[in-house]
Design a protein around this nucleic acid. Structure first.
Lengths: 111, 111
DNA sequence: TTGCCTTATTCTAATATTATAATCTTTTTT
DNA sequence: AAAAAAGATTATAATATTAGAATAAGGCAA
């Protein structure tokens, strides 16, 4: 596999995560299996839209599903993905803390 | 800050990383400061295009720049971002390894 | 000052993503 | 078998991203 191809894979991976609905889906899956019906109920979005977002995460091999009667249960396939989300949140937290401090210096410039 | 707002921040962060050119830029910056001229030379893309991608990473607070004479030097602002890239590569490696094994079972089904 | 070099910004056309609506498919229930 | 339930898929209109061309801005050198 060539370097350029890996970058494309990485890009596709990041694209799969780059949508609020898909992040919300993963957030729910962090606690365990969830059926589509529950996503519909909790996320308050159109069924077909949720199905499309699930398809994108499935295609990227981030989640898998099994059919149980009429329902389809989804779960996270590689739990490491949750670590990625956690690490991103850490970076964001650090960024926010710094801008907070900047604001503090702006409002109390002589302390 | 509300939960929904955090998700939007995360989404914006992932979007910033979801482009091959921007990943290539970060890959180069992993070794230290790089000037725009070097990106132009190494990435073989239009100057304005590179400048646009740098602007996106700047806006997301992932990189910063300083002007040195005519040149502008860029560097990674939060090195943790590199850990995110590393973790993603680990997930991809694991995914690829699994599909390799699947292929192996397909081609040598009786071993 | 004038011109040149490096980078940034703006504009635009092409492409990609997204949400909704409509239409299947599959499984269960009656 | 027919109807209902749960999801998936397809089509499409609206929106967002992208690359390239043209232009602008900032700093240096003659």
């Amino acid at each position: 596999m060539m370097k350029g191809e890996i970058i494309v894979l990485e890009t596709e991976f990041f694209k799969a995560l780059a949508h609020p609905t898909r992040l919300r889906i993963l957030e729910k899956l962090a606690f365990g299996e969830v059926c589509v019906c529950e996503f519909i109920e909790k996320l308050d979005l159109e069924q077909s839209n949720i199905s499309q977002h699930l398809a994108i995460l499935r295609k990227q091999n981030i989640i898998t599903s099994t059919k149980v009667g009429l329902k389809v249960m989804y779960r996270i396939k590689y739990p490491e993905v949750l670590n990625v989300l956690g690490l991103v949140r850490e970076v964001l937290a650090k960024q926010l803390k710094e801008s907070e401090e900047l604001i503090k210096h702006l409002t109390d410039p002589f302390e």
